[in-house]
Simulated scan of single mutants.
Amino acid sequence: MTNYLRKFAGVALGIGLASLSGLGAQAEVLKAAADPTIPPFAYRTVSGDVEGFNVDVGKAVAKQLGRDFELVVQEWSGIFAGLFAGHFDVIIAPVTITQERSKSMAFTEGYLETSLGFLTKADAELSDLAALKGKVVAVNNGAIADTWAQENAAKYGFEIQRYLNVPDTAQAVQSGRAFAALAETGTMAYLATKQPGLKVPQTINLGGAFAFAVKPENPELRSRIDTAIECLKQDGTLAALHEKWFGFPPAADSPSVNIVPGYGPVGFENYDPTEHDLACN
């Protein structure tokens, strides 16, 4: 090899090592999906950015994992298909833990209790659910409110209208196409404060929790995210974010405070009872 070739090879090797070193210094990315039409969990600001309670929790989880955070905007109706197709690592949108869903995805432990709220016009009467008879209830297609509506439409005698996002259900109420809209209580309470002439006269306690969801083929990631959520509970970050976005601290027995043994929600598919110590950042 000539001196010129030796010199060229040395330079090339140095560049290659420097490039590899640079790559090694880069943090992994946590690609997290949310539908930005569910305030205050995730919504677009006037500037076009997406913010909200779940976005803040997702960023805090990524920080605990030592990863960069990348938000993937995904319409709710396609969010589960997007996870299964590998378009992102985790769903951080408010997903309610259910037995049916746990058969096809691996949930973390819960981070927020679930309830549904009815949004109506301010002058509407909804003293009890019997008042829904003969009325139209608007829901976000495929959401847990849609599931509840399907299970209770015959019992209370109301008709279901489905929309692609929660703000559209609220618009259906304002325009008179629907008597009430049904979605997560936090979202409906937020919309009622932002849109004049609306109120939340009734809520339904589902007795469950929201959780992050990953593919069941990736139990290591689920366990790491689960541990990160536990760290946010332990150091008070989750409770502080709850107060920031909902205006009050979580109850002492709330999923936002209580740490669940093992990985995932107890009693559901893909739960792992393995005990573990917390090593938090």
Rank of each mutant, 00 (worst) to 15 (best):
A131H: 06
A130E: 12
K155C: 06
Q174D: 03
A170D: 02
D146P: 11
A138Q: 07
K133Y: 09
K133F: 04
A153I: 05
A130C: 00
V166M: 04
E151L: 13
V166Q: 01
K135M: 10
A149P: 11
T147A: 08
A153L: 05
A130Q: 11
A145F: 03
D168E: 08
A145I: 09
Q150R: 15
V139Y: 00
V139A: 02
E159T: 15
K133N: 14
K133E: 12
T147C: 11
E151R: 15
Q171L: 12
A130N: 12
E151G: 11
F158P: 11
G176F: 08
G134R: 11
N140W: 04
R162F: 04
E159R: 12
E159F: 04
A149Y: 02
G157T: 09
A154S: 15
T147G: 11
E159K: 15
R162I: 09
T169A: 00
W148A: 06
G142L: 02
A145S: 13
V166R: 00
G134H: 07
N141L: 08
L129Q: 13
F158G: 05
V136E: 04
S175Q: 09
N141G: 06
Q150L: 15
R162Y: 10
N165K: 09
T147H: 07
G134A: 07
G142F: 01
T169P: 10
G176H: 13
A143Q: 08
A143I: 09
I160R: 06
G176P: 15
L129W: 05
V139G: 01
T147S: 10
A149I: 13
A172V: 04
Q161D: 14
Q161H: 14
P167L: 03
N140R: 14
V166N: 00
N165Q: 05
V139M: 02
L132Y: 06
Q150F: 13
D146V: 05
Q150W: 09
L132T: 06
T169W: 01
F158R: 05
A131W: 02
V166P: 03
N152E: 05
Q171V: 14
K155E: 12
N165E: 04
A153Y: 03
N152L: 07
Q150N: 14
N141T: 07
S175P: 08
L129Y: 07
G134F: 08
N165I: 03
E159V: 12
P167K: 03
D168H: 03
S175L: 10
N165G: 09
G176I: 12
A153M: 03
K135H: 07
L132D: 03
I144D: 02
I144W: 00
V137Q: 01
V137N: 03
V173Y: 00
L164A: 15
N140G: 09
A138G: 12
N140M: 11
R162H: 14
G157F: 06
R162D: 05
G134M: 03
Q161C: 05
T169K: 00
Y156V: 12
E159D: 08
N152S: 08
L164D: 03
L132Q: 00
V137A: 01
Q171E: 14
